[in-house]
């Protein structure tokens, strides 16, 4: 049922009441956690979009300098892709109730994510060694700001990753709930990969 047909209902009418009485109380078939995650992702997407709008708005001024593109960023991007892929494999294995393999892929994902974060910090170090500080030019400022914000979101995800990974060691029953949690982590990681890809392309093009 579309949102428009919902909004056109007349709840005071007797025939509509017969339909409404059968309603089970949910508007979407999604689970609570997944619905919440999707809403959170929308909010995060808006946050990054607004930063990007500010970025593009600030570019219009004359003092803007093109960003350097350290090679390491490409390596970091590859690591992020593998991390996301590893989460995909963890998700598939969790769905098949293969806890052992899930655990291995979870550990690989976590290790790759930490490598990505360390890699980004190395990029920062490289930029600083060239004298590109946060206040040198707004383009550098934005680079530090956006990458830091992305890292912060990954760190938040790592808390969830830690909980799920620890759970994989002590798991006795409740595999459905476990699979859902792995699934939510995987969605979050795929999303942060897309965000990074978007930021990376924006940084490359400008």
């Amino acid at each position: 049922m579309s949102i428009f047909s919902t909004l056109s209902q007349k709840p005071w009418m007797a025939d509509q009441a017969l339909v409404d009485n059968e309603h089970m109380g949910k508007s979407m078939t999604l689970s609570l956690r997944k619905a919440t995650l999707f809403l959170l992702l929308i909010v995060i997407a808006i946050l990054f979009t607004l930063f990007s709008v500010a970025y593009i708005g600030r570019m219009a001024y004359g003092d803007w300098r093109t960003l350097p593109e350290p090679l390491l960023l490409w390596w970091n991007t590859a690591i992020m892709v593998f991390s996301s892929f590893s989460f995909y494999r963890a998700n598939v294995n969790a769905d098949h109730n293969n806890i052992k393999k899930t655990r291995i892929y979870l550990l690989v994902s976590g290790a790759l994510t930490i490598s990505f974060i360390v890699g980004q910090l190395f990029v920062w170090r490289e930029l600083i060694s060239f004298g590109y500080f946060v206040s040198t030019n707004p383009s550098y400022g934005f680079f530090y700001l956006l990458t830091a914000l992305h890292i912060l979101h990954l760190l938040g995800g790592l808390i969830a990753w830690l909980v799920v990974t620890l759970k994989s060691f002590t798991l006795k029953n409740d595999p459905v709930n476990f699979a859902l949690k792995v699934n939510l982590c995987a969605i979050y990681w795929h999303f942060l990969l897309i965000v990074w890809a978007f930021l990376f392309v924006m940084l490359l093009l400008t």
Partner: peptide, 11 residues
């Protein structure tokens, strides 16, 4: 959206 009781449509 997701935790209304039975019969509680949005409208």
């Amino acid at each position: 959206l997701q935790a209304r009781t039975r019969g509680m449509t949005l409208m």
